Amino acid sequence: MRFTIQREKLIASVQDVMKAISSRTVIPILTGMKIEVKQHGVTLTGSDSDISIESYIPAEDEDKVYVENIEEGTIVLQAKYFPEIVRKLPEAQVDIVVDEQFNVKITSGKSEFNLNGQSADEYPLLPQVETENSFEMPIDLLKSMIKQTVFAVSTMETRPILTGVNIKLEDQNLIFTATDSHRLAKREVPVSGTNVSIEQVVVPGKSLNELYKILNDSEETIEISVTNNQILFRTKHLNFLSRLLDGNYPETSRLIPDHSKTTIQIKTTPLLRSIERASLLAKEERNNVVKFTSNDDALIQISSNSPEVGNVEEEVTADKIDGENLKISFSSKYMIDALKAIEYDEVIIEFTGAMRPFVIRPIENDSILQLILPVRTY
């Protein structure tokens, strides 16, 4: 096997597939990276038991040559050393030659490395995802859906199903929901041109975080395919495969209140900054609790008190307050996460009482919803 490749292209692909390689895997060969060389290009694969990533470098693309001097073959290289070697090579081109005994020679300029490879016969084949149940959407839209929901998944393994994001597609409407049982994040988008329906699949939050990092902010589309226990995200040069979580996701729609007693319309950034400042003293106390008090003259008081440290109070002006005056306490961390995820200049917050969950949405867009359970303070 042999090929000569542009180093920058190789580095980008290596970095992508490394996100799926773990040194803690129980299958020794999965600590390596599989490289498959064909006349049309080179495919790199990394996998652990949860996610598998294939990155493809075409031999030629848009009249640019990325891979040449091709002799077909496959090899598995130690992921512990290969990425570092590639990153530090001196020239723009890298020449890789593999002999019958899987000895690998990597040359660039005057630098030459010899590595011991492994036969790729041992490397498990990735599950094939049938693409009947698939739809397409813009990459940037998928990334914003991940960003607006994945932070709310649970980090506790006590209820494994809550460590994932619930994905549902019905009537050309795609819904992402995440909850850790103290807060909930939900985002809906219309997906045109598909008659596929996906009842509910739960994708590990960890997988979606890695996918988010890998995807370029391009306008291109991504194809999403689902089977019984796998989900595949496919772009022109990338296949990202994740296992799905087993179990039934809780019915979350009944958590969302259908009426409110107090509605506050407010600019996102001043509110966010104020809560961030109040949280500086709330760190020591249980749950980073911040108090939120509204009164008649559109002023909101944000305060936090930590007996050992001190207290902080400040006022923020709301654009509009309707309904009853309100005193409520909540986790500053949850509120900060929610406001950061919304990405709109102005939000509407709907309260149904001091001990009931409250809802935050952007004013111009009710397809984004954040829900937070208050904290009881005595």
Rank of each mutant, 00 (worst) to 15 (best):
T45E: 11
L281N: 07
V129T: 04
V65P: 08
V359P: 01
K327E: 13
E343L: 03
V201K: 15
A282M: 03
R254E: 02
I342S: 01
L208R: 06
S329E: 08
V201H: 05
E62H: 09
E210F: 07
N216G: 14
K267H: 14
F292L: 13
I85K: 09
E314T: 08
N133H: 02
I302C: 03
T177S: 14
V226A: 10
L271S: 06
R183C: 04
V153Q: 00
L339F: 02
V290I: 12
S294G: 04
V97Y: 09
T31D: 11
K38I: 00
T269E: 11
I349T: 02
S119I: 05
P357Q: 01
Q78L: 08
L44W: 00
D61R: 12
K110W: 14
E223M: 09
L211W: 07
R234E: 14
L272F: 11
L238I: 05
L326A: 06
E62Q: 10
Y212M: 11
Q93C: 11
Q101A: 10
I256C: 11
E315K: 12
V312K: 00
T107H: 10
P307K: 11
S242D: 06
T4D: 06
N287R: 15
I57P: 00
D337N: 12
Q15K: 09
V165W: 03
T131H: 08
I11R: 04
P83Q: 02
V97A: 11
S49F: 00
V189T: 13
V14N: 06
F102E: 06
Q15I: 02
S332P: 15
Q6D: 12
N173D: 07
I256N: 14
S111L: 08
D258M: 03
P190T: 07
A185F: 04
E60P: 10
R254S: 01
F292M: 10
E346V: 03
V165G: 02
P90C: 01
A282P: 03
I372A: 03
P250G: 10
Y123V: 03
S197G: 08
A152H: 10
R2C: 07
D297K: 12
P270F: 07
T31C: 13
E68R: 12
Q148V: 06
F135S: 03
D121A: 02
I360V: 06
S260T: 08
A120D: 12
E91G: 12
I275M: 05
H259C: 01
Y212D: 14
S274G: 13
E324D: 15
V86W: 12
